[in-house]
Write a protein that binds this DNA or RNA. Sequence first.
DNA 1: CATGAATGAGAGTTCATTCAT
DNA 2: GATGAATGAACTCTCATTCAT
Lengths: 199, 199, 199, 199
Amino acid sequence: MSKHAAEPHISHADERRKALVEAAYQCIAGKGFSGLRTRDVAAQVGITHATLHYYFPTKVALIQAVIDYAVFQRLLQNVPHYEGNTPLEQIHRFLTVLQQRMREDPSNYLVLYELVRSAPNEPVIQEALAQRDIFADWHARLVSLIEAGIAQGQFRADLDPGSAASILITFILGLGMTLLVSVPVSDEMLVQLERLLTG
Amino acid sequence: MSKHAAEPHISHADERRKALVEAAYQCIAGKGFSGLRTRDVAAQVGITHATLHYYFPTKVALIQAVIDYAVFQRLLQNVPHYEGNTPLEQIHRFLTVLQQRMREDPSNYLVLYELVRSAPNEPVIQEALAQRDIFADWHARLVSLIEAGIAQGQFRADLDPGSAASILITFILGLGMTLLVSVPVSDEMLVQLERLLTG
Amino acid sequence: MSKHAAEPHISHADERRKALVEAAYQCIAGKGFSGLRTRDVAAQVGITHATLHYYFPTKVALIQAVIDYAVFQRLLQNVPHYEGNTPLEQIHRFLTVLQQRMREDPSNYLVLYELVRSAPNEPVIQEALAQRDIFADWHARLVSLIEAGIAQGQFRADLDPGSAASILITFILGLGMTLLVSVPVSDEMLVQLERLLTG
Amino acid sequence: MSKHAAEPHISHADERRKALVEAAYQCIAGKGFSGLRTRDVAAQVGITHATLHYYFPTKVALIQAVIDYAVFQRLLQNVPHYEGNTPLEQIHRFLTVLQQRMREDPSNYLVLYELVRSAPNEPVIQEALAQRDIFADWHARLVSLIEAGIAQGQFRADLDPGSAASILITFILGLGMTLLVSVPVSDEMLVQLERLLTG
DNA sequence: CATGAATGAGAGTTCATTCAT
DNA sequence: GATGAATGAACTCTCATTCAT
């Protein structure tokens, strides 16, 4: 079938499907969720919108694949591993990597924004997002890291882990917004924010 | 109701137009820009969508009016007045009032997001937003407040005013996002965040 | 609104709706249920298919109206009243009127055929038909008439009312089919069939 | 399976074609002419709908083959042989066999209805049906049987052979309809109907 | 002022058909 | 022979827009 049989069988259909998902992803990043048109997505890959339905029976199916791609392949798979020795180092790395990625590829953030914004009105998205509550995961992980930091004496003793974790996540969410509005952003921000923990 | 009103000539048509703009505003807050339907807007005011076109010749005209309303009447008019004696008190009040309003009436934030989200693709919105850069204003005001706080010895000496102001604004932006995603939010967050300034 | 206000308020919309239902009815009679196209129906009334959706939000709604029209207005409202003194006279009138109508306006029969044929595959039709089981009604009525005829000595004593009623209805159903296939049909048939009852 | 078969050259292609026709026949019986999908037909035989077009260049060609099959192989070949000694026995057997087959395999009747229903609009079907008028054959045969029965004194003397034959055929047609509508059907019906002949 | 009515453009979807492999 | 892939035509439905009344 394929010219090179050595690869783990990546069929033409799989490639097309992936290309379509990525095209849809870019469309959402560019024109928003509501601006998504199957005709545009198909045209971007060089096929008709009728052919798109050969790969995805319905627009919803395409959207679900996009969500999957956005959440599980672009966001989660690249989630920072909290590498580092001390809790501070791990949190630092977490924040740094997220910020860096946000700058390098803002589309991921824009698409995620679109998803959470549209979720209340679109059951499909709502379900897909509820399947894996990223922010709850982040929060839990940060709380335990902060608790560890307090226990080790690295963080301030009077720090409330829950609130501090919420501050960090809220900050990350806000960082995403700065892609859209003009707020001066610098690396110094992270440095200062971390002082919140260490005091 | 009355054909001749004593007030400075607020015609019935102007009232209707305003009511329609507010209805459209709420629709956008609820279902986003893409979910905006002239039928819904008109129905909310008690007229048909055909009549709506008497007041606004096209949907774009209505949207432009909504943008005007959102930016100049809702966003700017609601900016906290930085009341208080010390810089810390002023900043505290600034943050508190913003957070409070966000809770009481999330529509403002939701529409704001819709605006900035659509700005890159819609020159109309882009112009309206550029006409008055709220966040630049906030940033400048916060920087001067922080500098004053440092000068007064109320804030940490090693604080970078620019970065700290950006952190605060980014945090506020993030707080708006928590309306859409499930992140635990508490008043304690503001308290802890302010410690960033005081040390 | 209307030029002549004396009539019980038959609005333009009601007329159009009725015209559309009748057009759809004729389409079904002519091209079958599957050949029903909203464009054709609309064109037959002289409007666009978009306008049709002004009167009927969906094709299913139109179909439901057609079923209503076919069953309740064309079939039931015109159902023979079993007039006559003796049971035989009533049954005779019942059969005669049905046969006569079938000849005069075969479309009703053709549409009903389409409905029952499509019912198993189309839940909408299934529900609409189940709402009023015409044939069960007919059967019950015929059974009681036959029982009365037996009691009065007008009908054969060894007649099984249930089977006889089923025969009559089955015959009626078959008569409808003769509209489509070439079977010689004469009034004499009814005369002879009734001898089945009288012996 | 075998490339070279001893039989009078029934090629693999012919088998496939027949299988496809039978599959289409069942599809029509199940979902009607309008519900016929080449995909379904092909899938039922275990091939794709693309391959189907190798055997039948167009859907119409397939349908024509189905009509041919339905009329000449299913309908005609299954006609009862009027076995029996007396005319009554022959007619009884004729009716009984027809009813029995109708119960055992309703598909025949369902497809027949589809055929006669579509005939007015589809010249192809019209021709195929006109080529061999089954019901005219039945009618002629029944008439001669009834005349014989009258001559033998087995049937009522005042019986009109033409009308009586029409009644029987009409009844059979109606019996087919009872597959679609809920009318109580019993073997007793045939018994009573035959009394019509014998008196 | 207000509306009912009508429309065209465009959306997603289905399906028979074609073609290179 | 068989198939995956691609397509155009046609369908139902939506919506902003227009216009006579």
